[in-house]
Design a protein around this nucleic acid. Structure first.
Length: 316
DNA sequence: AGCACA
């Protein structure tokens, strides 16, 4: 990361700069002989829950490198998603990343992705331009975030998409790329700000977990994680309160407290298996802590007021 | 699998 160290991590996440769609950016293709018109750089996404919103899909996809636009076709029995990327390589990478992704654990929707037969056609000027919205058309959610003077991004979603099931996948020790969840060919990605993000995701075998609470237990951290690394990732998560690192014999573990269970749960899902750049051993394991922050095991020390019906109401 | 701090 170039010496842009003045950006504090606990700053609001700013959406990554996307290629400006209205200007019809020339697609960066390695082979200039090809017109790129015939190259499919769209993926087809099935397995979406019937009540999926375009915005949902878009918010998932927008973090993927090279993402241009997405659309859902609701006419079929099951919604069919399409996502356009700037290059076929980006599309392939995204396809792999999204393959078997649990889109919604509650409805048990698991995504299935394929390369599309043909490219998604993105209509110009539909995106975020209220004057030119053609109401008869379905709104396409494009990757255009160039709303000038946007006060604050409406998303405080963490940068990475949720766990994706690419068994055995390990992020390469490539130069830290805040937006890249997976390796993608050289495309102008300027690495503008040191936005903390895992360098990838790895599957996690989460044996047992504890009942949800507002504190997360982070395990399977590498030997040489440093606090800044962890803080960088977690402190920007919505509802983050504080964290505590615990170094043990061989392991380093970490506790993260959130305002409420929701915050913890979201991060539990979204960052599960996130691979820190420092990690030599795959993704971090995220579990709910056995005890919430600021509260000890039970019994032991003097503060035994809670056992005799004392209404120690702490909500989580 | 490793769960601390008041």
């Amino acid at each position: 990361m170039a010496g842009a160290g003045m950006h504090p991590y606990h700053q609001q996440w700013v959406p990554p700069p996307q290629p400006p769609p209205p200007a019809a950016p020339p697609i960066p293709v390695e082979n200039p002989n090809r017109t790129a018109a015939d190259e499919v750089r769209t993926i087809f996404i099935s397995g979406l829950p019937a009540d999926v919103k375009e915005r949902e899909l878009h918010n998932l996809l927008r973090w993927l490198p090279g993402f241009d636009a997405s659309q859902i076709n609701f006419k079929a029995e099951q919604p069919m998603g399409f996502a356009l990327f700037s290059t076929p390589q980006h599309a392939i990478a995204a396809k792999n990343a999204l393959q078997d992704l649990v889109f919604d654990a509650e409805t048990k929707s698991v995504l299935h992705t394929e390369m599309a037969k043909k490219n998604l056609f993105v209509k110009r000027g539909v995106v975020a331009d209220s004057n030119s919205i053609d109401q008869s058309k379905r709104l396409r959610t494009g990757g255009d975030y160039t709303h000038a003077g946007y006060p604050a991004p409406p998303f405080h979603t963490p940068p990475p998409p949720p766990v994706w099931g690419t068994p055995g996948y390990m992020a390469p020790p490539a130069p830290y790329d805040p937006y890249g969840g997976y390796p993608v060919p050289q495309v102008s990605m300027p690495t503008p700000a040191p936005v903390p993000a895992p360098s990838g995701y790895a599957p996690v075998q989460n044996t047992k977990d504890n009942p949800p609470c507002n504190t997360l237990f982070i395990g399977n951290l590498g030997e040489n994680v440093n606090e800044e690394e962890l803080r960088g990732i977690f402190s920007v998560q919505p509802g983050y309160k504080q964290m505590k690192i615990l170094r043990q014999e061989r392991n380093t573990v970490c506790f993260i407290e959130f305002d409420d269970v929701n915050g913890a749960t979201t991060v539990h899902q979204n960052l599960q298996g996130a691979v820190l750049p420092s990690s030599g051993r795959g993704g971090m394991r995220i579990q709910f802590s056995k005890n919430p922050f600021g509260r000890r095991k039970d019994s032991v020390n003097g503060s035994a007021a809670e056992h005799n019906g004392a209404p120690t109401t702490y909500q989580q």
